[in-house]
């Protein structure tokens, strides 16, 4: 099925030109407190710039409410972007009309978080996986579509005899595989995985991570990998973006972000990963909670919780995402990045 689309230039390798380019993307949600009140706005995503290449995984980490899911959904135009620009394979899809967008949708697919609620309980695995095939007319209904669905199921490690089952007859790991098969059936180039392993046990989690990596190698997929579990992102993503209150506060290769941790928030997040070998090191525990996106703090959104906050600067002016070392592609938005 992937033969009919143009084969990726280098399978399993990262091509130079980005497949996805996002510029200063913002998503605002209006909130009305009453029928006659004028709306206030939640900046769910606030001026995000990023790119992802073919065959590359960009990990997006952050706490709940940091805008990870909204960002991915806006990129796939499941939400209408408010400001900014989304370029997918050299096509500006920001304001693409519905008809043209539909064709693009085949190439950008979403794997949802909860395999328990994201599959329709009244549809069999066959119906779930072949729905996209029918919508995009990739095969004539009947034997051909069935064969295509079966091939996709095999690709995600499910036996074709699962086709007649309903979601409730499957285990959590199997359901997530069906969710991935549903997305893969239409032959996408970009896969946005929203917490794909959070609802699963560690043993099954490892299976799904391995599966996603194998699929990426085989199909040259470009992936957005959203997770609050840094350990998983650290393991699977080539590059990592750390989000806080709708903005990216640090982004670079996973190695750079994990090793240097320039932003104090990145530092706290990494420090919060419970270690398997208690080494007696004091954990850096952040005080307070993420503020509401309704009225974000002035200046740097992280300043009320930041251990190295400078009065008069951090609470007045918001830092922009800049390279600390020119040419390093490791960007940080902080007035006082940690340098040790």
């Amino acid at each position: 099925m992937s033969e009919e689309k143009k084969a990726p230039a280098s399978r399993g390798r990262v091509a130079a030109a980005p497949l996805l380019q996002v510029d200063k993307l913002s998503k605002l949600f209006p909130v009305r407190s009453g029928p006659f009140e004028s709306p206030r706005f939640i900046h769910a995503v606030d001026g995000v710039t990023l790119y992802v290449r073919r065959g590359e995984t960009l990990g997006i980490v952050g706490e709940s409410g940091s805008g990870k899911s909204t960002l991915a959904r806006t990129i796939l135009r499941l939400h209408e972007p408010t400001l900014g620009r989304i370029v997918f394979d050299d096509v500006d899809i920001t304001r693409l009309p519905d008809g043209d967008l539909r064709a693009m949708r085949r190439r950008m697919q979403y794997v949802f978080q909860d395999p328990y609620s994201s599959l329709n309980p009244r549809m069999t695995v066959r119906e779930i996986v072949s729905e996209g095939i029918a919508i995009f007319k990739l095969a004539r209904a009947g034997a051909m579509a069935d064969a295509m669905a079966a091939a996709t199921l095999e690709k995600v490690g499910l036996r074709p005899d699962m086709m007649g089952r309903y979601p409730h007859e499957l285990s959590g790991g199997q359901r997530q595989r069906v969710g991935i098969a549903r997305a893969l059936a239409v032959g996408p180039d970009l896969l946005a995985c929203d917490e794909p392993v959070s609802a699963l046990d560690v043993s099954v989690q490892a299976q799904v991570i391995n599966l996603l990596e194998r699929l990426q190698e085989e199909l040259g997929l470009c992936m957005l990998f959203i997770s609050h579990d840094l350990r998983v992102v650290q393991y699977t993503a080539h590059r990592t973006a750390v989000m806080y209150l709708g903005r990216i506060v640090e982004m670079g290769t996973t190695a750079d972000v994990a090793e240097k941790r320039h932003h104090p928030y990145t530092r706290a997040l990494f420090s919060a990963i419970p270690s398997l070998t208690p080494d007696g090191k004091k954990r850096l525990v952040l005080q307070g909670e993420p503020p509401s996106a309704m009225d974000p703090p002035k200046g740097c959104a992280f300043h009320p919780r930041c251990p190295s906050m400078e009065k008069g600067r951090c609470d007045v002016e918001a830092p922009t995402l800049e390279e600390l070392v020119p040419g390093s592609h490791h960007r940080v938005a902080c007035w006082h990045p940690e340098m040790d």
Binding site: V14, V202, S203, Q205, A206, I209, L230, R231, V232, Q234, Y235, T236, H238, T253, T254, A255, A258, E259, I273, S275, L276
Partner: peptide, 16 residues
């Protein structure tokens, strides 16, 4: 169980 946890720590990330 222990082996199936992705390793963590500053050297655990995977390069291409």
């Amino acid at each position: 169980l222990l082996r199936s946890i992705p390793p963590s720590g500053p050297t655990a990330f995977r390069t291409r």
